[in-house]
């Protein structure tokens, strides 16, 4: 059922006190195939993410990373294969139900609502939340991670800089209080200083216990923070292993780290 080849065996979680026992993963993607019309964008990808893990999904443009994330979020339907989350089958759920189940996504290209204010963007992120009272506290948490958003609250999202929009996209995704956060290319097109800020926040979220599946073109940065990673090529997983193993893998080094 699990057809991927591991580059090294998957080790016990790197966090403290991990028993290393095979607890069921929080998210399990099994052999999904996804088509855009007649083109097969994802050809049987399998991966899993355990609670509190940070897993990176690497690969070049067109490898199927974004399609995989969008399929997990329910925006695409896999033609075959299965996605389970917390033991429940997600494969046929509508996107809004998947968000309500605890998976939120900060999409590629940020996809900020440019004509809506920063506050409206953030509150839309909390759409599935039932407890409206906790929202103030959650806004404070986002401002704590991204103080600049507090100064921009009344501004239209479209007037923000690229880096600020990325912060807004991540803050918006956090407003749903996700158990699993999908981050699609959070550092794309950002200045080096901003890339560092974003990765600091990713590390901090991980430390706070958020489970993260991170799609990145910046493989070096991603492998620094990831517990494990998968490498996608033309729609299939070609390598997987811990962040350290992949960072040391000569193939990865040549293809993605630009040695």
């Amino acid at each position: 059922m699990n057809g991927r080849k591991d580059a090294g065996q998957t080790q016990g979680p790197l966090r403290d006190g991990g028993p290393g026992s095979p607890a069921p993963p929080l998210l399990a993607v099994e052999e999904i195939r996804v088509y855009y019309g007649a083109i097969q964008a994802v050809r049987g990808v399998s991966l899993d993410v355990r609670e509190r893990e940070l897993v990176a999904l690497l690969g070049s443009n067109g490898a199927g990373k974004t399609t995989t994330l969008r399929t997990i979020s329910g925006l695409f339907r896999p033609r075959s294969g299965k996605i389970t989350y917390d033991g429940a089958d997600l494969t046929k759920l509508a996107p809004h139900r998947i968000v309500a189940a605890g998976i939120s996504q900060s999409p590629e290209g940020r996809q900020i609502f440019g004509s809506l204010t920063v506050r409206e963007n953030l509150l839309l992120g909390a759409t599935p939340r039932k407890d409206r009272k906790g929202l103030g506290g959650d806004l404070e948490r986002v401002f704590d991670l991204f103080p600049v958003l507090k100064e921009r609250l009344a501004q239209a999202g479209g007037t923000l800089s690229g880096g600020e929009q990325q912060m807004l996209a991540m803050g918006r995704a956090l407003m749903a209080r996700p158990r699993l956060l999908l981050l699609d290319e959070p550092s794309l097109g950002l200045a080096p200083l901003m890339v560092r800020r974003i990765f600091e926040v990713v590390s901090r979220l991980k430390a706070e216990g958020v489970t993260i599946l991170l799609v990145e073109q910046n493989a070096r940065k991603a492998l620094e923070v990831a517990d494990r990673a998968y490498v996608l090529e033309t729609g299939t997983v070609v390598l997987s292993g811990t962040g350290l193993e992949l960072a040391a893998n000569p193939e990865v080094e040549r293809a993605y780290l630009g040695a």
Binding site: A94, H96, A100, P107, F113, L123, T127, A176
Partner: peptide, 24 residues
């Protein structure tokens, strides 16, 4: 209203709106 804001968001970017948990 929340529904009105959701409608504006959906008109601007339906994909992102769905990722917010808005029921299309």
């Amino acid at each position: 209203t929340r529904l009105g804001t959701a409608m504006r968001a959906t008109a601007e970017n339906a994909m992102a709106a769905q990722l917010m948990g808005i029921n299309l």
